[in-house]
């Protein structure tokens, strides 16, 4: 990866948090906002491998923890875990352009939603109701937005030079 691509990627990462905490709030349908940090971490893991996934997950997770009311480790751990799991999942996924990418990303979003729910809510009594009204719609929205981003990345990767740039001077990287 050359310095230019790296800088563009880093600026994109830094730009994500303000977008997540300001612009997306006005665009949220029914109070739901896509978790851009989770989506970007997932896609980085899927396309770049587990190591890149973890690195991006840690960076975004720390940023989210700083600008969120939650504990200072929750997003760090969940986002790093997302990058790691997505990276390993990609090894068993033959067609990265497939809309089936929706399912792993939605599943990860749901699982981390449950973790957040259990860690922050005062009780588990309304868990089932919360899962239906909040966690599942959130997971579906994250999955749908991720499929859109994934389609754009697949087109970009297919262009050629970007594919070689991305493919690899970092450990754990590589395009399948």
């Amino acid at each position: 990866m050359n310095v230019g691509v790296f800088l563009v990627f880093l600026s994109g990462l830094l730009f994500l948090l303000p977008v997540q905490s300001t612009l997306l709030y006005s665009l949220s349908p029914w109070g739901l906002r896509p978790d851009l940090c989770l989506i970007v971490t997932c896609l980085t893991g899927l396309w770049g491998g587990p190591v890149r996934g973890v690195v991006v997950g840690v960076v975004l997770g720390v940023g989210q923890d700083i600008f969120s009311a939650g504990s200072l480790w929750l997003n760090l751990l969940t986002k790093a875990g997302t990058g790691f799991l997505a990276g390993h999942f990609a090894k068993n996924f033959s067609n990265m352009e497939s809309p089936l990418v929706f399912f792993p990303i939605a599943a990860l979003s749901f699982v981390w939603g449950v973790v957040f729910w259990l860690s922050s809510r005062t009780g588990t009594g309304a868990m089932l109701h919360g899962a239906v009204t909040l966690l599942l719609p959130q997971a579906a929205l994250d999955g749908l937005v991720a499929v859109g981003f994934n389609w754009v990345i697949a087109r970009w990767m297919a262009a050629g030079p970007a594919r070689e740039d991305w493919a690899g001077r970092f450990p754990g990287g590589g395009v399948r």
Partner: peptide, 8 residues
């Protein structure tokens, strides 16, 4: 701004 995570 608003909370950066969706859970709070």
């Amino acid at each position: 701004g608003r909370d950066a995570s969706n859970w709070y």
